[in-house]
Design a protein around this nucleic acid. Sequence first.
DNA 1: ATCGTATCTTTACGTTGACAAGAAAGCGAT
DNA 2: ATCGCTTTCTTGTCAACGTAAAGATACGAT
Lengths: 189, 189
Amino acid sequence: MTVTRAYHHGDLPRALLAAAVAAIEESGPAALSLRDLARRAGVSHAAPTHHFGDKAGLLTALAVEGFDLLAAALTAAGDDLLDVGVAYVDFAVSHRAHFEVMFRPDLYRADTPEVRAARERAGAALHLGVAALPPHRAEPGESRTDALAAWSIVHGFATLWLSGALPPDIDADPRAAARTVIRHLIPPP
Amino acid sequence: MTVTRAYHHGDLPRALLAAAVAAIEESGPAALSLRDLARRAGVSHAAPTHHFGDKAGLLTALAVEGFDLLAAALTAAGDDLLDVGVAYVDFAVSHRAHFEVMFRPDLYRADTPEVRAARERAGAALHLGVAALPPHRAEPGESRTDALAAWSIVHGFATLWLSGALPPDIDADPRAAARTVIRHLIPPP
DNA sequence: ATCGTATCTTTACGTTGACAAGAAAGCGAT
DNA sequence: ATCGCTTTCTTGTCAACGTAAAGATACGAT
């Protein structure tokens, strides 16, 4: 006799991560409860701990998944810095649970090799967009601060939007507002 | 006989806020424990709850204090957008506990009138720096996105630095790096 | 001196993360 | 088939946490 479950046997980790995303989108990563996740998945209270070691382990897995998703989204956006920047903000908006965890290293183990590798993949994808910029300034090392400025402006816009600090009319269409904001950084041709 | 205490009688709230700042700087706002604060202040575990109602109440007070400190720092920086921007980053670096709480509205009551007022004071101070920019573009409503772009780039740089996402050489002198980054936003005269 | 209030303590309850030990199911080797 | 090993999950337990209620103590105004 087969037991009816919400997940295929052996796929508890995936189900738990999905439940964690839903829970974080509801009430933030600080209020995440392992026992609540177990309840949602219909397993005992200690099942999550077995698969992820502890709470930080679960959030580490979520962060890795997030950096990989971000890398894929940025790569798919192409070479234009404007498109890549909008894709960054779009990722934060449409994957806010992942994004909120990714940049809160006190919640997980950010120094794991897997996390480091996934983060570097995302960073490389972001740099591709910056590299397509015309080298209008001849100063050495300028492209590095170019990248840092681009990263800062899209990351700042994304986190401000996530924290609800932006006025309501921007809340309505963050992607369009992001495009306008990023344009301020790119010199007119 | 007078009892030796770490704080003047009646100043427990201040002592608790100071202890909270120290605790958050050590291990982040998520790991903050009211009972730990009480231990540090030498009072019973329920004393913090009396003064702040609950944990969110304490963090609300901390956020209000933070927005006021930020407003003061930005005002003191003057009218130049570059200076104001660097002051924003400098505030995040030198008051990281306040800053981390301020932009995490799921941890406190961000819709309180006091919080709202303090946040608007800080916003007004930031806008002063943007208003000093030359109106080089004649498009209507441009100054609003100017402000948003400026806020985004300094906020993004600050949060990236706080989350440890920036390379080590930038960690060493974030203020200088911030100045370089902000310059990317300001058109050369 | 007394009353009222603010300040803190004591006690208690439900929830949480973590740990340890055990049950149960899959699985390859024999 | 069945033995032994591993993975998966359950059960039981513990200390720590946030919160609430009620009692104790001190302060200040009258």
